[in-house]
Simulated assay, not measured.
Amino acid sequence: MKPTTLVEFVRDTYQTDKFIPLHAPTFSGNEKAYVNETIASTFVSSVGKFVDEFEQKIEAYTGSAKAVATMNGTAALHAALYMAGVERGDLVITQALTFVATCNALYHMGAEPIFVDVSPVSLGLCPKAVDTYLGEYAELTEQGCVHKKTRQRIRAVVPMHTFGHPVELDELVAVCLKWQLVLVEDAAESLGSFYKGKHTGTLGDYSAISFNGNKVITTGGGGMVLCRTKEQGARTKHVTTTAKVPHPFEFYHDEPGFNYRMPNLNAALGCAQMEVLEAYLVKKRVLAEQYAVLFAGSEYSFVREPEYAQSNYWLNAIICPNKSSRDQLLEQTNAAGVMTRPIWQLMHRLPMFQNALRGDLTHSEFIEAHLVNIPSTPVEIVKK
């Protein structure tokens, strides 16, 4: 199959000769009405009815005990790691095949990543690889899980549900129990994805969702911390609201906190987007199926959801035969005004993480050299 075939399919699907982005926000409901209501109320900052309503909608949809809205996904992950007990000098196991925000949150906490390989099925952190790494390099002590060489505490495991495809959560939970580690899910990309009937982000102790402009639904900028218990949620909300103790007029803060709360203006957009989320997910699955048919029998392999999961197909992806064919596809599609993108460079290739501890990354390196993301915005009509 030639790159021009993909260009023709995408243009036919989106019915336009203009530039086609990878994933654009779609506004088809009450977004303007709710945002205008927020402006009229003057409550456009971190206090207002839409913040509470948005949190409740996410709780109801995901089944989380408590959801806490934040200003972006990185802030949500930072808060989740803080609540999980990650401290300066700790080690945290995560994947090298991820967006840099995963590691930025660790860096700004003074924690350090350990990069472990991903599964070729989920594209996310592989539980067998995690257990193998720990068996070789870690030991359990009175202080918990400790790295044999550095003697640093290994505190948490952070899988990322790559492009919305859920990782093997049961197996990761078991590994975390075995090694006394906290599971924090980076669910930034996976709103609307389910693992064995449970929404991603609800099996870990904490998780983080993103509502950036390129996600399945958007609040412009925004994130959400999902908490396992209401008690954890109450403390997370307290910490992310500058740890201010409620009082009619006094300003008293009982611990260091973050000013991470989502503005009411953004939450209004989110509430409207939640009303159309299910429709978006249906359209995205239809588009994914059309891509699967397009690439069937070709030298390109379409990335399907794992058998144990239902993915939101946030970003559709294909695996190219080799790096040269990947580069050719990227060059020709982008030159034709159809946005395609390679996956992120592996984190240990970036200067700030080049000295990080890591295990074997065979699958991560293969995916890095072969994967291309293709346009994934949900559309009203997809050509049959």
Score class of each variant (00 low, 15 high):
Met262Gly: 10
Lys215Met: 14
Thr241Asn: 06
Tyr291Ala: 11
Gly257Ser: 04
Gly197Pro: 12
Gly85Pro: 10
Thr141Val: 03
Glu8Leu: 13
Leu191Asn: 06
Asn334His: 11
Gln273Phe: 08
Leu361Asn: 04
Phe9Ile: 06
Ala309Asn: 09
Gly144Pro: 05
His370Asn: 08
Leu77Cys: 07
Cys176Pro: 02
Phe163Tyr: 15
Ala174Met: 14
His161Val: 11
Val7Pro: 02
Ala67Met: 03
Asn30Thr: 11
Lys18Pro: 05
Thr70Pro: 07
Asn312Glu: 01
Gly221Phe: 12
Ala187Ile: 09
His108Phe: 15
Arg358Tyr: 05
Arg151Val: 15
Phe211Met: 02
Thr236Lys: 00
Tyr308Ser: 08
Gly297Arg: 10
Gly48Pro: 10
Leu329Ile: 02
Phe211Leu: 03
Asn214Arg: 12
Leu281Thr: 09
Ile367Pro: 02
Glu8Tyr: 06
Leu203Lys: 03
Phe99Leu: 15
Leu350Glu: 02
Val216Cys: 00
Ala234Thr: 13
Leu350Asp: 03
Phe366Val: 15
Pro3His: 00
Tyr206Cys: 00
Lys49His: 12
Thr94His: 01
Glu331Asn: 05
Thr333Asn: 00
Asp205Pro: 06
Tyr308Asn: 06
Lys149Trp: 04
Leu125Ala: 10
Phe366Gly: 07
Ile217Ser: 00
Gln143Gly: 14
Asn312Leu: 03
Ala335Pro: 06
Met1Lys: 05
Gly29Glu: 09
Val51Phe: 07
His108Pro: 08
